[in-house]
Simulated scan of single mutants.
Amino acid sequence: MLLDNHNRHINYLRLAVTDRCNLRCNYCMPSEGIDFVKNDKLLTIDELVTLSTILVGRGIDKIRITGGEPFVRKDLMLLLRHLKKLDGLKDISVTTNATLIGPYITELKELGIKDVNVSLDAIDKATFERITRRDQYDTVHENLIRLISEGFNVRINFIVLEGQNEQDIIPILELMKHYPVSVRFLEEMPFNGGSKSFQTIKWDYKTILGHITNAFPKYTKLKSPITSTSINYQIEGHKSTFGLIPSFSRTFCGTCNRLRLTATGDIITCLYGKPKANLRDILRHKGNSDKIKEAILSAINSRAKTGFEAQQEHKSVFSSSMTSIGG
């Protein structure tokens, strides 16, 4: 079991497999993109398997595959096949923009990997294309409907962006009310690759809730796991649920059970903090699992108590891109 220095049980790994993405969302990075790392700096599939095996052996029982966009990596299914064989790993899930997942849906289902988070910040095509700077709406919509119809546990992650997509909040809830999905609204996060600078947000989770309940006054608050980052609700008459993730307000830090491993091997104990060690370098230069375990334990034993405390570790957190941090 992994316990941090604040006695929080760490059992959930967010594993980034690439820093690359085929979209250029304006809240994540500038239109020209960012400087993606060279392939030799990325963890190989064998290295991802090795590090995952070590972490599962230390008590990680849930792994979420993130990026960048995970399916940009053409060998991703090799990793997933290996992870399914790990004793002690109870849950594998994927976060994707749903542009490239189509050819892999059948095998994901066969492997039993049915928890899929789809990043979708607009239900209107024109708004989607303005935000993503790409013409992929029809593909995303088709893959989303296929995932739902084939029985995947789908959660839609919708980042509320002031002046861009607030008008889509109610329509996406209206559209999804017929399906057993969760639509989760996130506060905008300050990881935008330098695309803009901000210290406050208008659309915090309380404002989003007020906007939704003004349109749908009959709703129920749902009980959520203690480690959940979302506050969850259900509107009367809807098959779907909706959640609010205070990703800027950071109200969930006290029960955080997450560890992040970036595509380049950085181990990150808080989304807002600095990397604590690079496991890729230890693995390649020392090849010693004991050294890797020592680095993991050292990182976990020096975790910040909150995201606000972790943010003080560096000055440039706001110019980082989520694709390089690992989702």
Rank of each mutant, 00 (worst) to 15 (best):
S298L: 14
I145R: 09
I282Q: 05
A98D: 15
P171D: 02
E309R: 08
G88E: 02
T106I: 12
S321C: 03
I268Q: 11
N278H: 09
A263M: 01
M1N: 08
K177E: 12
N301D: 10
Y12E: 04
N5V: 11
D138A: 04
T106Q: 13
M77G: 11
T207V: 08
T306E: 04
Q164P: 07
S320I: 14
G59C: 05
E32T: 14
V17N: 06
H141D: 02
H82C: 12
L3D: 06
P30R: 09
E69M: 02
F252R: 12
M176R: 01
A277I: 00
T262W: 09
T99A: 04
I226N: 05
R24M: 14
R250G: 10
R284L: 14
P217N: 08
G193L: 07
D204L: 02
S319N: 05
S31M: 09
K114A: 07
D40V: 12
C253L: 07
Q311Y: 05
F152E: 09
R155P: 00
Y272H: 12
T255K: 15
Q136P: 00
G237T: 05
E47Y: 03
A215C: 08
F71Y: 00
F158M: 05
E294A: 13
I292P: 07
L48W: 11
L209Q: 14
S289N: 15
I212G: 06
P275N: 14
C270I: 09
K286P: 00
S320Q: 13
P225C: 01
S195A: 15
K218C: 04
T66H: 11
A295T: 04
K291V: 01
S289L: 10
Y205T: 05
N214T: 13
